[in-house]
Design a protein around this nucleic acid. Sequence first.
RNA 1: GGGGAGAUACCCAAGCGGUCAAAGGGGACGGACUGUAAAUCCGUUGCCACUGGCUUCGCAGGUUCGAAUCCUGCUCUCCCCA
Length: 426
Amino acid sequence: MTDAADVPASQDPALEREVERQCAVLLRGVVDCVSADDLRRRLRVALRDGRPLRVKLGFDPTSADLHLGHAVVLRKLRQFQDLGHHAVFIVGGATAMLGDPSGKDKTRPQLSREQVEANARTYLAQATKVVAAHERQLGGRAGELEIRNNADWFLGFGFADFIRLASKMTVARMVERDNFTQRMKDGQPIGIHEFLYPLLQGQDSVEVKADVELGGTDQLFNLLVGRDLQADAGQAPQVCLTTRVLPGLDGVQKMSKSLGNSIGLTFSADEVFGKVMSVPDALMEAYYTLLTDLDDPQWRGLASSDPREAKAALAARLADWLHGAPAGSEARTRFDRLFRDREVPVDVARVVLPRAEVPGGRLWIAELLCRLKFASSRSEARRLVLGGGVKLDGVVVADEKHEVVLERELLVQAGKRRFARVALSD
RNA sequence: GGGGAGAUACCCAAGCGGUCAAAGGGGACGGACUGUAAAUCCGUUGCCACUGGCUUCGCAGGUUCGAAUCCUGCUCUCCCCA
């Protein structure tokens, strides 16, 4: 390893300009950088010697789905790639089974080997929507993606190795972590295994010889542990960069699938567009800063003069980003028709029910709604009807006992956004 | 190891022998308003073709005409002491 600390500021102005240019890009949306000076030194060496930085980012495959919150830090990794650096993407096959306590007010469930493996697959496919998956020629340098699974080294980790690793951390340091202090105060349980998590993540940095590690702000502690372990192993301690956490649709809590306030990377263009439109206005700054490369004045003016337009532009942009160019504007057209003009969508799904299952062509309305998956139980369907949320051929039907007559095709609407055209088979 | 407290519906949280399918809040859903923003207001929020029935209050038994509420055992958690 090159000892970056020994490299003085270069006398080469072109080199210094490039270092500053890269820093400007890399520090956008960044909260903590430990340390910025160190990052500059490393960039200087990387540029001078043509040795790209090894930039580590790890996710535990605890859920099969990534969302825009993950995309923030994935974009950061992508920015490093675009500047010619080397991305090391860690799939936390081993750590997923342990459960990261970061940013959580309770213990995470531990996953089985099978779950982890299944998640890991869908996972990479999603991550590479954001991160460049292949070698790219940019700035005369290759920004590569290296994928590693930490199960590869932890499965060969012996008992003695494990105890030695555990001895590198003190209880006092673990306990002083914000969320542990909070949990103890709240009388919440903390498993001993949760103390081990940061050590394993830190060990990953040693294994892959990371120059930089990325994470959300709730990851700062874990990232810093990596520095200690690297120093202990005789490596130069990694630079730790934390990105701002993206708030979820509720505008308060961080985006998280389990909180149900997320926009998944696999969501359809219509879903992405719609969800973004429902984000509170106050979040536009965060979303534009963290999810686009646009400069401040480019969207800020629009946001103050026409907030809806600013949001729609962002929504279209994000849909394009995840689904390719025309997807955003197409989604917008459909959205405007449905929500602004209050018209029935053009492409309503057609559902054909077997005539044999509908005696006399008549069907109880609650039963119909269940068949269409517009309600999960008949009781729920009845309530929906009673609440005036159901329209048949555009007319509200509030009678819970209504018998639907299916002579010809019928347009069924539940709430504002669920539509179906129902017909009987011949 | 000793002592104390607790486990209630998606979440938080009341209930402490019948009037409890279980207060209140949050969330979610539906409606009004609207820019699927914010704010506000209203309704719904276990299942079942339902003026009735069935299953829910950590798990398993028991007492009682009757239990979320009382008793016993078990599981899990928190606190204090060692």
